[in-house]
């Protein structure tokens, strides 16, 4: 797990560099400070489960088997990226890896993931669906329709709310009157809890229990992870609207540093082992950035015609 946490942060840093070099096409959405949620929740799933990441859940796609080169190619709009340059950022999926692609419209994933959970129930499978949403995204109707649908049908769906306190520039207090988002679980008659999203082990243990519960047929869960978005909405956004003291406060709660301390203090990881992991990541990312930079851009369709694949055969 530590490898993936570090990998998530390092991929994010590399993407930031590529963005500043003008090599990333379009927006870049940092997961800085929220890596623990992506990685620990993805770790709590089994192979047959399906995960629906949102744009900041880069780490979850890595745990499900996508490689850093996939992300570099995707963000650089290369033909060898998972969407072949057809869509941007984390808008890709592969159900063989149990990853459902998101769309830009917030909340839309929740009913879709409920449908994946529904297929599991209808076919008598033991597959659990897990997805994410931000504090702002919970104000979209799809969140409520999807959660209620899953609740009524007792579907194996786990929804992780990443309450990172800001929806673009709008603070959570301007988005909703009751800022304890897990209270909605009670409204829909499902399990809900609010946890420290920057405590990797708490996120893992809580998610693991909710996934096990859902798998046994006890229905959906809503886990609110309190965290903080440490950069702007996207890289173009300097986030001047965020009070500096809040950033300072949350910097001390960095999920990766806290997990490192835990690993060191409990004798689970030594400084040498940490260095080995960091060196391995550096090597891998050097190679993968080079791969992406040398990957070709996609070939357009002949003038006036559509690219193939608008329809399935």
């Amino acid at each position: 797990m530590y490898y993936f946490l570090r990998l998530n942060r390092s991929v994010d840093e590399r993407l930031g560099n590529l963005y500043r070099q003008g090599k990333v096409v379009g927006g870049l959405y940092s997961s800085l400070g929220q890596e623990g949620i992506s990685v620990a929740t993805a770790y709590a799933l089994e192979k047959q489960d399906v995960l629906g990441p949102m744009i900041r859940n880069l780490g979850a796609t890595l745990v499900r088997g996508f490689k850093p080169r996939d992300l570099f190619c995707q963000y650089m709009a290369r033909s060898s990226g998972p969407s072949g340059g057809r869509d941007c950022n984390l808008h890709f999926g592969d159900l063989n890896r149990g990853v459902m692609a998101c769309i830009s419209m917030l909340g839309a994933l929740i009913p879709v993931m409920a449908g994946i959970a529904l297929s599991s129930t209808l076919r008598g499978e033991d597959r659990v669906a897990l997805t994410y949403i931000g504090d702002g995204g919970t104000r979209v109707g799809d969140f409520h329709e999807g959660l209620n649908f899953a609740a009524v049908k007792d579907l194996p769906l786990v929804v992780i709310v990443e309450n990172n306190q800001f929806a673009y520039s709008t603070p959570v207090t301007s988005q909703m009157k009751n800022t304890r988002i897990s209270d909605f679980a009670q409204a829909y008659g499902i399990f809900g809890t609010t946890i420290d999203g920057n405590d990797v082990l708490e996120v893992y243990n809580t998610t693991r229990a909710a996934v096990a519960r859902a798998r046994q047929g006890a229905g959906p869960a809503l886990i609110e992870c309190n965290t903080f978005r440490m950069r702007g909405h996207a890289e173009h956004d300097d986030a001047k609207y965020v009070p500096p003291e809040l950033l300072e406060f949350w910097k001390k709660k960095d999920p990766i540093l806290r997990f490192e301390r835990y690993l060191f203090n409990n004798g689970i990881m030594t400084q040498a082992e940490q260095q080995t992991i960091i060196d391995r990541i550096t090597r891998e990312l050097d190679a993968d950035v080079a791969f992406a930079e040398s990957s070709p851009l996609p070939v357009p369709a002949p003038c006036g015609t559509a690219l193939p694949g608008v329809y399935a055969d």
Binding site: M100, A114, L118, L122, F149
Partner: peptide, 27 residues
């Protein structure tokens, strides 16, 4: 299990249909 009544939630009906369809069902 094959004739499913839903809440009044058109977005959820279609969303859940999409989820089941990508898993190989034919809603």
């Amino acid at each position: 299990k094959r004739v499913i009544d839903t809440p009044i939630s058109e977005e959820a009906i279609v969303g859940a249909g999409i989820g089941a369809a990508v898993m190989g069902m034919r809603p």
